[in-house]
Computed example of a mutant assay.
Amino acid sequence: MIAAFILIVGFVGILIFFLSTLGHGKPSESTNQVAKNSGKSSQSQSKSTTKSEKSSDKKDASLPNSKTTDWDMVLVNREHPKDEMNPELTQIGNIQVDSRIAKSAEAFLAAAQAINPAEHFISGYRSVAYQTSLYNQYVEQEMAADPSLDRSAAEAKVQTYSQPAGMSEHQTGLAIDLSDVDSLNESTTAKQVAEIAPNYGFVLRFTADGTPSTGVGYEDWHFRYVGVENAKYMTAHHLTLEQYLKLLK
Rank of each mutant, 00 (worst) to 15 (best):
L63D: 04
K191M: 08
Y244E: 02
W71C: 01
Q163S: 09
D180N: 14
L22K: 12
A114N: 13
E229P: 04
D220P: 05
A110G: 05
E169L: 08
H238D: 15
T90R: 09
A194W: 02
V76T: 11
E53Y: 09
T240A: 02
Y138N: 13
Y218N: 05
S183F: 08
N32A: 08
S179L: 08
M143A: 03
T240W: 00
E79M: 12
S162K: 09
I196T: 04
G217Q: 14
K157D: 07
K47V: 13
A111K: 10
K51M: 13
L89I: 10
F108I: 10
V226P: 09
M143N: 05
I92H: 07
E229G: 02
W71T: 04
L22C: 07
N136Y: 06
L15A: 14
D146G: 10
S213G: 01
K59E: 13
A102Y: 10
V139K: 06
A208M: 03
L149S: 03
Q91G: 01
S133W: 09
N199G: 05
S30G: 03
Q91T: 15
L247Y: 04
A35F: 08
Y125K: 01
N94H: 08
T207G: 05
L247W: 03
A112D: 08
Y125C: 01
S66W: 08
A154N: 12
V193G: 03
G124M: 04
T160F: 00
V228C: 06
T240V: 02
T132L: 01
L63A: 06
Q96G: 00
P164R: 02
D83Q: 15
L22R: 14
L63R: 03
V181K: 13
G23F: 15
A129T: 04
D180Q: 12
T50H: 11
G201W: 14
F108S: 11
P87C: 01
N86D: 15
I92D: 10
K47E: 14
S162E: 10
L149V: 01
I122A: 03
P27M: 00
Y233F: 14
R224N: 13
K40T: 10
I101A: 04
V9T: 10
K26C: 06
G23T: 12
S148C: 04
A175E: 15
A111D: 05
E140A: 14
L7V: 10
E195S: 10
R100T: 07
E106W: 01
P147Y: 05
K103Y: 07
L22A: 09
D182K: 11
G93Q: 06
E79D: 15
E229T: 06
I196C: 01
A154F: 10
G13S: 14
T68Q: 12
Y130S: 13
R126I: 00
Q192A: 15
F206V: 00
F108M: 14
D177E: 13
K246C: 04
L134K: 11
T49L: 14
K58L: 13
D209M: 06
L184N: 12
W71P: 02
V97N: 01
Q113L: 02
Y135R: 01
